[in-house]
Design a protein around this nucleic acid. Sequence first.
DNA 1: AACCAGGAGACAT
DNA 2: ATGTCTCATGGT
Length: 230
Amino acid sequence: MLHTVFRRLLERYGPQHWWPGETPFEVMVGAVLTQNTAWTNVERAIQNLKANDALAPAAIMAARHEDLAAWLRPSGYFNVKAARVRNFCAWYLQRGGLAALAGEPTTALRNELLAVKGIGPETADDILLYAFERPVFVIDAYTRRLFSRLGQVSGDEPYEALRARFERELRGTDAERVTLYNEYHALIVRHAKESCRRRPLCQACPLADSCSAADSWHQDNHAGHGAANL
DNA sequence: AACCAGGAGACAT
DNA sequence: ATGTCTCATGGT
């Protein structure tokens, strides 16, 4: 079932080649800045960091809070995020940077990330998947909404419960899972932006293309008006 | 002009 | 364990 949805999304939208970011560190900072925030706003904040030669852990640690907050301003919650980005950089530098962390097992690395104040489960998994290339499935609001509307989940399960289910059902070698989870999450976000709220018709949903009697899970959920925005 | 956007922490219950 | 509040900008 999860494989089927993935195939349909990939068929419709094509590869998304995520994460939008040139370096692993840019990906990590972006993961924090995009918390409950539109990506277009995050881009401005990252441009501000670049323009001030501050898109580097040492530079962020050296900056005054007021300056950092001013650079992050377009991404919203700038006071909170200035502190969170700094917390992350402090950990990142103390742990010796990317090369040193690359040898750490995924579970240990995940626990360390979660111990940083301001990095919750989704941000940690964004970083693990898209910066460290670890086989971790990212659960976000879009994922909950989509699969809730497809009748696969209630939507209010704990984060870890959903992640466990996706990772259990989507198996393979580590390398295969990294590639699959990367593309899958990106496609879910793409689909949410593409089809939600703008196309009330179920025909516009790529997940409706193959609606058939065999897909009872899918047909049932396109029958009601509640399935309008997939 | 309300509502939303690729969450997380603090705090009360 | 599970709710509620706060943080804040920019686009629709």
